[in-house]
Design a protein around this nucleic acid. Sequence first.
DNA 1: GTCTATATTCGGATAGAC
DNA 2: GTCTATCCGAATATAGAC
Lengths: 188, 188
Amino acid sequence: MPKIVDHAKQRADLLEGAFELFADRGYAALSMRDLARGLGVTTGTLYHYFKSKDVIFEEMVLRAVARDLTDATAELSEELSASERLRLIFEWIQANQKDLRRVLLLVFDFQRHKGDDPLAKGLVSEASATYRREFELQVGAAPGIWPLILGGLIQGILEPSHEDGVARLQAMETLLLGARADGGSGVD
Amino acid sequence: MPKIVDHAKQRADLLEGAFELFADRGYAALSMRDLARGLGVTTGTLYHYFKSKDVIFEEMVLRAVARDLTDATAELSEELSASERLRLIFEWIQANQKDLRRVLLLVFDFQRHKGDDPLAKGLVSEASATYRREFELQVGAAPGIWPLILGGLIQGILEPSHEDGVARLQAMETLLLGARADGGSGVD
DNA sequence: GTCTATATTCGGATAGAC
DNA sequence: GTCTATCCGAATATAGAC
């Protein structure tokens, strides 16, 4: 009788571990060999569960996005105002900013390595849009708020010493109120 | 007497060409051989003018920053209001966004390759701070405006199809006015 | 271990000002 | 012709992949 393993769970576990390894070393620099070694399996096992390095990367990204969205919105209830939801999401982002920055850098490394491969671009823009849409669903689509979120993360990468999350949250609230005052249909 | 070439000009020309090559291929993927070949010289020549690949990269970045600042602020006069200056700078950024995005991606590639080398971090944060300080000098330090600039560029990298510069400019003007109304001492 | 590719070095060739 | 900054590219050393 063959050894029975939960195929889906094994895949999920591998993807989970792959995230840490990719985030640390980048897409290009992490070979399948290193990935396997870091996961405690062989390349043969990896290829048994996944068709290619790209497939691993793609599934890992989609998984991470889904987990983030669940996690970030877990405590948001319908009864909260847009402003309160914004504050809670902002706090989640601040708490997870280290990981979020690693993801951004990983995505840029992936993009660079793939040149202008349309598949890669599609994955990146789809993942990015998923975050953005959920954010706009939660707090409204006031122009500028989402780029301000992204910009805050980038600023933290570029100039770690020069950060002021509180001021940025206030700026986002200003934008939120501004859009409300307009007549509400603020579309970015 | 020896052959005379304008040493400073030759350095500048090499750095100029190096920018295009680095921006296209990234820091890690561009070897000194390829760089030399792309510039129409040999590695020997390169090392005659520069101590190392890192020095080339650093000088090239500082040069590009200086050129950008001169270029972006060329048409700004003292008589313009902060809001008008913001608009002109924003238009310059929009016109040069393709290059600016390439520079951002290049910097991220450099950072990844250098790990947490403090010299590399210093270069990146110094360059970033130079842009930011000049911007704040020109339009004021209203919280959120600078990250919003960065975020717009990043959004363009991640989701090229979903861009709205006009809305972002309006958001920045809102933030500018908000800071003014506060009493003016809005520090990010 | 071998093989490949890299950043860097160095002894010599070249050009052109005097 | 002399001199030397400039330029060349094979050689070196080192690192990593396999």
